[in-house]
């Protein structure tokens, strides 16, 4: 496990070089690295049939794409009266584009064009579903969950297909969906903007939306537990890490009591 953490730290240092353009440093926040996604990308590429010396580049590439997508989520929509906020918005637009350009550049250097295409397909799907969630065009809780699955996990699915790996994309899908559902439920409880709040405002359905949402959370909770038991016999350290994370999510967001 220690070795994994050292490698992850090394990847974070590599990413940091891309994030540290002096102008970005001056005006915008450094992208927040999603530690869960970093670990899952790492695990996925470890299993892929690629030369050891290239693995780090692949993880960096996937994380650059993730950071590009996340950075564009920070672009504000309200009128910027403050000059600083306006520059911040402008640079968030450019930073996301810059990270996207870098992913293509790195993969072009190592000449894996199929991987460029796999990631591009995932980016396309993610943006389609981000729009559905954002413009509230999902017609049911199930449709919301379906969009969340794609937004959170399409990169893992497409990379998995590219390298013909099944286990890690499946674990990523179940775990990351569970994580996002917990976060959305938590936001809902705190009365902050969540997909559930938005849907509830729009929906005239008599069904118990919160209850249905919690049922979905619980479904993914049991699924990820089953998957970890079944699939990670040979990676006890990673298994333990994810188990701990699930525990934190479940109890810090109190899904269990309500469910």
């Amino acid at each position: 496990m220690m070795e994994i953490y050292q490698k992850l730290e090394q990847i974070k240092r590599s990413l940091d070089q891309y994030f540290s353009h002096p102008v970005f440093k001056q005006y915008i926040q450094k992208p927040v690295i999603d530690e869960d996604k970093l670990l899952l990308f790492y695990a996925l590429f470890e299993e892929a049939e690629i030369a050891d010396e290239k693995k780090e580049k692949y993880v960096v590439t996937a994380m650059l794409v993730q950071s590009a997508l996340d950075t564009h989520d920070l672009v504000t929509t309200t009128e910027c009266e403050n000059k600083k906020l306006f520059v911040e918005r402008q640079l968030n637009v450019i930073a996301g584009d810059y990270f996207s350009g870098l992913y293509y550049f790195i993969l072009s250097e190592i000449q894996d064009l199929k991987m460029v295409r796999a990631l591009a397909t995932a980016i396309k799907e993610i943006n389609e579903h981000k729009i559905r969630l954002y413009d509230r065009s999902c017609q049911s809780i199930e449709a919301i969950v379906e969009s969340i699955v794609i937004v959170e996990t399409a990169l893992f699915q497409r990379i998995g297909e590219h390298f013909q790996i099944e286990t890690w994309p499946e674990i990523s899908k179940t775990y990351l969906t569970y994580k996002r559902l917990c976060e959305e439920k938590h936001k809902y409880d705190k009365n902050s903007q969540s997909v559930l709040t938005q849907f509830q405002k729009k929906s005239k359905s008599p069904i118990d939306l919160v209850g249905t949402f919690i049922e979905c959370c619980n479904h993914y909770f049991w699924e990820i537990n089953k998957l970890l038991e079944k699939s990670l016999k040979y990676s006890p350290a990673v298994k333990q890490f994810i188990m701990n994370r699930i525990h934190v999510l479940r109890f810090s967001h109190m899904i269990v009591e309500e469910g």
Binding site: A68, L69, H72, D73, V75, T76, T77, R89, V93, G96, D97, S100, Y104, L113, K114, V116, R117, A120, T121, I123, K124, N127, E128, K130, I131, Y134, D135
Partner: peptide, 23 residues
């Protein structure tokens, strides 16, 4: 016509589509 966020997602979609095509 829509808003900044939609513009970001549409732009990202088009960029990704471009890479799908050129590859």
């Amino acid at each position: 016509k829509w808003d900044n966020r939609i513009a970001m997602y549409v732009g990202d979609y088009l960029f990704a589509r471009a890479l799908e095509i050129i590859t």
